[in-house]
């Protein structure tokens, strides 16, 4: 059974936030332009790993539509990372995840981390770790019994990042252009 989920994750408490230069909160519709920029940076990064991940010319319009749709979808989770101090109110990172039902396997509720991106200046200092932890918690709170992450096969940085935190490859997607 899929647990009923709220479209807005519970706000994170101050005790959850380590000493990181960001503040994580649910994304709002006025974040969309900034989030689109971050999402496109991530897709262009993916392009570096594989020619089969060539970014479409209309990617910006697609990203805008996708994020707008996600914000209204109870099965989607979009978080915005804001800077702090002088960078307050500036969106410097994005997390996008979906809840999916696994039809044949248990646990049946899967939280899929589709996109995590943080501007370079805000990386390190354990920020990535913090983003992942908060995302996993939010997905768990919405009933996920398993969490997965999707990223390019040749992204060794992501492989290492998730591997260190207990993730391993479960399903492989092999591609061939036609």
């Amino acid at each position: 059974m899929t647990k009923e989920t709220s479209p807005v994750p519970a706000p994170m408490t101050a005790t959850d936030a380590p000493n990181v230069p960001i503040h994580l909160r649910p994304a709002r519709s006025d974040d969309v332009p900034a989030l689109v920029g971050l999402l496109l940076r991530l897709k262009r990064l993916n392009e570096e790993f594989d020619p089969l991940l060539k970014v479409r010319a209309d990617a910006e319009a697609r990203a805008t539509a996708l994020l707008t749709q996600d914000l209204a979808d109870p099965k989607a989770l979009v978080l915005a990372a804001e800077g702090i101090g002088a960078d307050k109110d500036r969106v410097v990172g994005i997390v996008r995840a979906h809840l999916r039902e696994r039809l044949f396997y248990t646990p049946e509720n899967e939280g899929v981390i589709l996109d995590i991106y943080l501007l370079p200046l805000y990386r390190r200092h354990g920020v990535g770790e913090y983003l992942l932890r908060e995302t996993v918690q939010a997905l768990k709170a919405r009933g996920a019994g398993i969490v997965t992450a999707e990223f390019p096969a040749h992204n060794e940085i992501a492989t290492k990042f998730y591997g260190k935190r207990g993730f391993r490859a479960v399903t492989l997607v092999h591609a061939k252009s036609l």
Binding site: R41, R44, L45, E48, L119, P120, L121, I157
Partner: peptide, 21 residues
């Protein structure tokens, strides 16, 4: 650090990437 080739640098030229930061 805000340049849009930063991620490419991170992968291809981490020395330049570090200096950019």
């Amino acid at each position: 650090a805000e340049r849009d080739d930063m991620d490419e640098l991170m992968l291809r030229n981490p020395w330049k990437y570090r200096l950019a930061l």
